[in-house]
Amino acid sequence: MSKHSTDADVAFIKALAEILNTNDLTELSVKREYAEDDSLDVRVVKQANVITTTHAAPAMQMAAAAPMAAAPATNEDPAQHPGALTSPMVGTAYMAAEPGAKPFVALGDKVAEGDTVLIIEAMKTMNHIPATRAGTIKRILFEDGSAVEYGAPLMIIE
């Protein structure tokens, strides 16, 4: 932590927050060195909105690029759900193989264990993520093209 706080530090942190927003990032960490034993460590994190859908009538089925409809608020942690499919890595999650393509799955779709349900791009590599169990896609917990963290719940398969 810096031994001094200045208006320049505040401006620096505001600039980092602006970079975070304009580049659609979720987290940014920087260490600013002042002297041999004086530095400022800054970590700026944008809270991602988790949007879920518990069910959808045929009229409510949405394109993969459209935002998901919000589910009623609950106190349950989706990561603790026995049917939770969690992210095996940090990256960007996609519902389809390429922009404009048909999504791998939609709400209500039945999947077999091992079926590809999404892709996570990490380090310029497209990683196909398989269903961890057979069942029906009950909830999709991320937006197409959003950043995901390791262990974050992505879908609920029941």
Rank of each mutant, 00 (worst) to 15 (best):
D77Q: 15
A48F: 00
I51E: 15
E33Y: 09
A96N: 07
T52V: 03
E36R: 11
I120E: 04
A96P: 00
M62E: 13
G114H: 03
G100I: 02
A122W: 05
K46P: 09
K110D: 12
A48K: 15
M62S: 09
E36I: 09
I51G: 04
T53Q: 11
S39N: 11
Y94M: 05
M126D: 11
A56D: 00
A48Y: 02
E121Y: 02
G83H: 01
Y34C: 01
A17H: 12
V50K: 12
V45N: 04
T116K: 13
G108F: 04
N23S: 12
L85Q: 13
L40H: 02
P58K: 03
E98P: 00
L20F: 07
Y94K: 03
A69C: 02
P88N: 07
A106R: 12
T54W: 09
T53G: 06
A65M: 03
A71E: 11
M126L: 09
I51W: 01
N49R: 06
V117H: 02
A63H: 14
E27N: 05
V44F: 05
G91W: 05
T53D: 05
L40A: 07
A56E: 14
T86H: 02
A106G: 14
V44Y: 03
I120R: 00
H81V: 02
P78A: 06
P58Y: 08
A122N: 08
P88S: 09
L118N: 01
A17I: 12
A97E: 14
K31Y: 11
G100N: 06
A48G: 10
A65C: 02
H55R: 13
A65S: 13
M123C: 06
T92M: 11
V111F: 13
H128K: 15
H81Y: 04
N127R: 02
T116E: 08
Y94S: 04
R43I: 13
Q47L: 12
Y34V: 02
L118D: 02
V111H: 10
Y94T: 07
D38W: 06
F104G: 07
L40G: 05
V45K: 14
